[in-house]
Design a protein around this nucleic acid. Structure first.
Lengths: 316, 316
DNA sequence: ATCATTTACTTGACTAAGTCAACCAATTTA
DNA sequence: TAAATTGGTTGACTTAGTCAAGTAAATGAT
């Protein structure tokens, strides 16, 4: 099932639409170029696509193939008949439904598919080989992004994972927090600078025994983070909790806070404290649910706005 | 002409190749879905593609169309004949070559194309509309990246532009510098922290009269930056020059340094100074060419490495 | 339990879409 | 100036795919 937040929708701008259309035209051509290479084989393009599916997925039925590849049922039927005549596939009537059968490649089918597969592989390899490795990575990353955004069924198997800070993270976290709060609350660039300062200080004075960072990663992208720093022997401070809008609803915020609490307990701190602003309601709910209590409120003028700062404490 | 650096090439890994192939299969299907919607019109898909080209580009010849859309010459010839019979296009024999003619849509042709164009536009709009705006932007950005990387002819019209710092930049610059120097020279996370610290300080104490930032943007992405800060009435300091590997060779580094020098002169500084490390040879060449002179060298241990720091000065 | 409907697949009849080779005329190259 | 190349056209052809009708099995409604 797909769970997806849908904040701030608006009519897509003409520029965006045109860019997508330009990409569609471009990629139509691109696929055409790649397919040309496969045309020399005895199989048509569609036949090759069918063979690919059969080689990579088990227990497919004729309807599955038609649906997934967008083919006419009659056409699929004929293709399969041809493959059967060539002894490339075998069909086993399903016990659950005598109309359907599970289709599998025979060894001969695998043999026939192998050179096709190799050609396609080599062609893509040649395409990639024109680029330096760093650009290859960018290409693939961008492709994955496109695919994930367009394919609603493409929810990642692992929704997210937590890991400690690594090089590049503090810049990324700085950027995203700066941009998010600028966008959502109109905060100015001094907030981003504050985040940068806090993170720089965290790294420089990092004390692994008493402090820790958690970065939430989803599909190789940072989608959230939180930090615990030492204030005193007794008191730890939770800092800079954030979750990407696109990754909200997965429980990442709650999980990050839980990790902080667990860590603070394990290290023997007596109190976990944090500072936030009253307008950040999503975060507040998480803190409340985790047992934090508001201890202090104080108006202040920061980041170009009038705000109300809050201190929250949790007894460990 | 395409100028492109080709550092560190290697055989593309199987994972990358498979990811690209998966994307190709995915997008084949995606295009198929989008095209289904256009099938109800009187024109075939290819006819629609031809009309699109004709509507958007002037002075096309039959060969141009065949080449750009990957179509058989005979087929193009027939398509055009059909369009001519329907009075959708007109042909004007070229003065320069009596065999060729320049093809243009007639008003009737534009009329016939309009609903097709609208359908395609609306369909893409509907596709985008399923996503929140922030994700729409990500999608389009990723598509542009894919297109630019695969299409060697797709050099951007504007190679790059310079602008002052905006929200999100200091995080991005921090990240990229941290990652680049980690990758190329093995520097540890304290370098990234240092960049974050410097940039945070820059923003917090920014004095517009005496200080300035330049961010180089290419295709909407940050590909370089540099900062000038005030050391004293007489001395300005150039800091944190960097250019993305993918954007090198465009003269961005040189340009950024020139901007710094011009600014420092205009503000009446007497000296522009900078600190760098001897291993950063590309940067050094730029400084030398701009007239900077090495004034001091000093070994130091930073970022987990033994380095040789250098001070360079330019008399303004 | 039974009848109507839906689903999975098949088949015949068809055509749109595209290919291939041969050809002509204009242009370029040797 | 002859030979080769390029731009475009045409006839003959195939292939890839569509559409509608039909069968048998499964499902749903009564």
């Amino acid at each position: 099932m797909t769970i997806r937040h849908q904040p701030d929708r608006a009519v897509p701008s003409k520029d965006l639409i045109d860019a997508v259309r330009a990409f569609n035209r471009f990629y139509t051509r691109q696929i055409g170029l790649l397919d040309e290479g496969l045309l020399k084989s005895t199989f048509s393009l569609t036949e090759a696509r069918v063979l690919y599916e059969l080689a990579h997925r088990d227990g497919l039925t004729a309807t599955d193939l038609g649906r997934d590849l967008g083919l006419d049922a009659g056409y699929v039927s004929r293709l399969l008949k041809k493959f059967e005549r060539l002894h490339l596939i075998s069909r086993a009537t399903l016990a659950s439904d005598a109309r359907q059968s599970s289709i599998a490649l025979t060894p001969a089918g695998r043999n026939a598919f192998a050179p096709l597969n190799k050609d396609s592989h080599d062609q893509v390899a040649a395409l990639l080989d024109r680029l330096p490795t760093s650009e290859q990575d960018r290409l693939v990353k961008s492709m994955r992004t496109v695919q994930r955004l367009l394919d609603e069924n493409a929810e990642p198997k692992i929704p997210y994972l937590l890991r400690p800070l690594q090089v590049g993270d503090i810049g990324w976290i700085t950027r995203r927090q700066g941009m998010l709060y600028a966008q959502d609350y109109g905060w100015d660039e001094t907030y981003e600078a504050l985040v940068a300062e806090i993170l720089a200080a965290f790294v420089k004075s990092y004390d692994p025994k008493w402090e820790r960072s958690w970065v939430a990663e989803r599909e190789g992208e940072v989608v959230g983070s939180v930090f615990v720093v030492r204030k005193s022997d007794q008191v730890a401070k939770l800092r800079l909790l954030y979750v990407e809008p696109s990754a909200r609803g997965l429980g990442i915020g709650k999980r990050l806070v839980e990790e902080c609490i667990g860590f603070a307990r394990a290290r023997g701190y007596k109190t976990l404290t944090l500072w936030t602003n009253d307008i950040l309601t999503a975060a507040r709910h998480i803190y409340q649910a985790a047992g934090f209590r508001l201890t202090e409120e104080e108006p202040h003028h920061s980041f170009g706005k009038d705000l109300v700062g809050q201190n929250w404490d949790l007894d460990l």
